[in-house]
Design a protein around this nucleic acid. Structure first.
Length: 792
DNA sequence: TGATAAAAAGTTTTT
DNA sequence: CTTTTTATCA
């Protein structure tokens, strides 16, 4: 026993955590609030199971919900385990694990070998088409949501959720027809949508349990987010030994809209008697006052499962609820306050210690442009996706057609890109015609152009030539190249070569210049970046050999040889592109959606737009979930937490804006303005972040003279002007100059002595200059490339 | 029939 | 502020 307690992995864990990590129970449920070290505990248990219990890494399944969480976990386990053994773990998001199993064993359940993955856009397009063709009176998005719900619910009737057939039985009938037709379409294009990955994997593991006969233990992170089908998957993965470890927090369940069922927790405890429950009660993250206030928010939910949260840190300063005139003032204030905090900490805190968390990605616009103008570098997490940029999407669609010519949707999207004189109507007709003849669009086109069959849709000679020469030819040439990339070990830049060739054949740079004269450089840079991403992918795959499943005796698995399908799958399943290694040099402020911020923490957190309609969102169905969302956001903060709310909406009509009901009743518990940041306060912060606070001399010496160390935004002599919207933006450091080519350095408003400004502004100058391109461009077009520019 | 210009409408969260 | 629909012209 004593030797067990001595294992290095248990060092630095508290008693409850140790109990969870080293538990010999078959099933372990770790329930704990934010900041209690849940993920750390889970990773430690993985290490424990491998190192101490002796399971082979390839016999352990670890499932997460986001790609980011999976990467993070892989990193952490790797560090603790060493020897690169973590790479053998079956670790990833549910979706990526399922994809792996399906490509290895999908043949057993009649799945074609080279199935593709239908992303959001594909599936939306298909549903729309189906609705139109069958003349259904359905709202396509609603239908799609319904279909997804059906799939995600799981097949076991545990969830007696026959609750809402939206509307009448007629509606239900239509939905069902739409569902069937949708599936038929997917099948025809050899595609699986996100939900299908899970559904089909359940089918596989149920019919062929031997695929997972090696699995010793299954671990699930963020368990409160599992939906019906994921619960089934979990059980199926664990079907041979029933060894399951889950960690979760019902208060942080924020994926109900994705059919997550909190009930899965009780279900687990019921179905697996003798589950050891461990609760982690110590909160290592936040100051007492942040924790108290977050608790006040979440406790408004009367039905919740109550948990203990014991702060280990000092009281800290009270969170702030700031009211501003409008969203512009709000953004300006954030910049101001952020600077104040950093200055008053004598740079103990930097930009990378600050996060701005948003209910929806669209809210980032004001903030991004204000940060840009203030010359503050930032990174945006969630929201925009690199792979969604038009030019990248086009290239990807070409690649998808190369891989799967029968993917009608991808083909129809690229048919007229670059322009080949085929209009929307023509494409629609052709698809329709192919549909009638039950062949794919590709087959129809090829047949037509070879003269084996004349399409009844009119195609002029000229366009026909362009299709033959420009499209069919390109695809077929590329397919030849692709065939040579077959073995991974051989030609290592096969994939990259393929992409290069594609770009060359399309004359893509010229195409971009022609179609986007204003910002073709941007877009071309994105294309270059895309090539880099592909190269990285190839390199990573060669290094890690990741993605493969352990061999099981007596079981034939088809080996994934081709690079292209793997790359495409990776793209569909990755929400963002890895920016990791590049961005770390410059401290960047993080802007993120709340959803994407789950599991992360920052010393300083801003939550703007805390108003009715944003949190809770106007379109949300579940108030409690919205409240939990706010709770998640608030509990990301370690030391300083700021909520803010504009009094007026800033879209054309200046309607008044109502404070979120979640904080309205407790608004008196907040400070109205940023706290005083004197020495004692800063020392508490230093203690929480475990850094050393610079001396008073160092802090105050570098302060601009006459600098007011208070949060007096909007109270100074300038405040009169703030009433006009356009001038209200000038607080952010650089904008009171007339519009210049490059943001000019000038004194912030508010009556400081501008002659002393130079010293402290020097730090910002470099980023400011580099960021000029990004502030002057339309703000929607920020790209990875720009971030890289900022970073280097 | 397709491309271009002008007008209109639309914005949650992720795999 | 942007994407999608509609009208007009070639």
């Amino acid at each position: 026993m004593a030797s067990v307690a001595d294992h290095p992995i248990l060092k630095g864990l508290n008693n409850a955590q140790r109990r969870a990590v080293s538990s010999s129970s078959a099933t372990v449920a770790i329930l704990a609030g934010p900041g209690s070290g849940k993920t750390h505990t889970l990773t430690s248990r993985v290490v424990w199971l491998v190192d101490e219990v002796g399971y082979r890494p390839q016999d352990v399944v670890v499932a997460t919900f986001t790609v980011k969480a999976a990467r993070e976990m892989m990193d952490r386990i790797g560090r603790a385990l060493g020897g690169g053994r973590e790479k053998k773990l079956i670790l990833g998001t549910f979706h990526s694990i399922c994809r792996r199993y399906l490509s290895a064993y999908g043949g057993k359940i009649g799945l074609p070998k080279d199935f593709g993955i239908a992303d959001d856009k594909d599936s939306r397009g298909i549903v729309e088409r189906v609705c139109k063709r069958l003349k259904l009176t359905l709202d396509p998005p609603t239908a799609r949501a319904w279909i997804s719900k059906q799939k995600a619910g799981g097949s076991e009737k545990e969830s007696a959720r026959a609750k809402k057939p939206p509307g009448k039985s007629l509606g239900l009938q239509e939905l069902q027809t739409c569902y069937d037709e949708y599936q038929k379409q997917l099948e025809r294009s050899n595609l699986l949508d996100y939900d299908d990955l899970l559904v089909r994997c359940v089918e596989l593991l149920r019919k062929f349990p031997s695929c997972v006969s090696n699995i010793q233990s299954v671990l699930i992170d963020e368990y409160q987010d599992t939906n019906g089908i994921q619960y089934e998957l979990m059980k199926l993965f664990a079907q041979h030994r029933s060894r399951i470890t889950i960690v979760g927090d019902p208060d942080q369940s924020i994926y109900g809209w994705r059919s997550a069922e909190i009930g899965n927790l009780w279900r687990l405890l019921r179905e697996f008697k003798g589950t050891e429950e461990v609760s982690l009660e110590d909160n290592y993250r936040s100051s007492q006052s942040i924790l108290n206030l977050s608790l006040q928010v979440i406790q408004q939910d009367k039905d919740r499962y109550k948990k203990v949260l014991k702060p280990v840190h000092t009281r800290g300063s009270r969170p702030v609820l700031r009211k501003l005139k409008n969203a512009y003032a709000e953004a300006d204030w954030i910049v101001c306050e952020m600077r104040r905090v950093i200055m008053m900490s004598g740079n103990m805190l930097t930009h990378s210690d600050v996060a701005i968390l948003l209910r929806s990605a669209a809210l980032s616009r004001h903030i991004e442009s204000t940060l840009g103008k203030a010359g503050i570098a930032y990174k945006m997490v969630g929201g925009f996706k690199f792979y969604d940029r038009a030019e990248i999407k086009t290239l990807l669609d070409y690649l998808r057609v190369v891989h799967q010519p029968h993917n009608n949707d991808a083909l129809s999207r690229i048919m007229n890109v670059p322009k080949r004189g085929i209009g929307e109507g023509t494409i629609k007709n052709l698809i329709e015609e192919a549909e009638q003849a039950s062949m794919s669009l590709w087959t129809l086109l090829v047949k037509h152009c070879r003269g084996q069959r004349t399409a009844k849709t009119k195609i002029t000679k000229h366009t026909e030539q362009r299709i033959t020469g420009g499209l069919i030819r390109v695809i077929e040439d590329l397919r030849k190249i692709s065939a040579h990339t077959d073995d991974v070990s051989g030609d290592s830049d096969g994939l990259v070569g393929l992409i290069h060739q594609l770009i060359k054949l399309l004359d893509f740079e010229r195409f971009l210049k022609d179609t986007h004269p204003d910002d073709h450089e941007q877009r071309w840079a994105n294309v270059q970046e895309f090539i880099n991403v592909a190269a990285d992918f190839v390199r990573d795959l060669e290094q890690t050999g990741d993605d493969t499943l352990p061999e099981i005796q007596g079981l034939q698995q088809s080996v994934e040889t081709e690079l292209l399908p793997r790359f495409l799958a990776n793209v569909s399943l990755a929400s963002d592109v890895q920016t990791g290694e590049d961005g770390e040099n410059k401290p960047l402020v993080t802007i993120s959606t709340i959803h994407a911020a789950k599991g992360l923490e920052w010393p300083v957190v801003f939550i703007p737009a805390v108003y009715q309609g944003s949190i809770p969102h106007a379109r949300s169905e579940d108030q409690n979930e919205e409240r939990r969302l706010l709770y998640v956001a608030m509990t990301r903060a370690k030391c300083l937490l700021y909520l803010s709310c504009p009094t007026y909406r800033s879209n054309s009509s200046d309607e008044p804006c109502e404070l979120s009901s979640f904080v309205a009743t407790i608004s008196r518990s907040f400070l109205e303005k940023g706290p005083c940041l004197d020495r004692p306060v800063m020392e508490q912060i230093a203690q929480i972040v475990k850094r050393k606070l610079p001396s008073n001399e160092a802090i105050y010496g570098s302060l601009p003279s006459m600098y007011s160390p208070e949060d007096d935004f909007g109270c100074g002599p300038e405040s009169e002007q703030d009433n006009r919207r356009n001038t209200s933006r000038q607080i952010g450091a650089s904008i009171d100059a007339p519009p210049a080519k490059r943001p000019r350095l000038s004194a912030p408003a508010g009556g400081y002595d501008s002659s002393k400004e130079l010293d402290w502004r020097k730090d910002y100058a470099t980023t400011m200059e580099q960021s000029s391109n990004f502030t002057l461009k339309k703000s929607g077009t920020k790209t990875l490339h720009m971030l890289l520019q900022l970073a280097t």
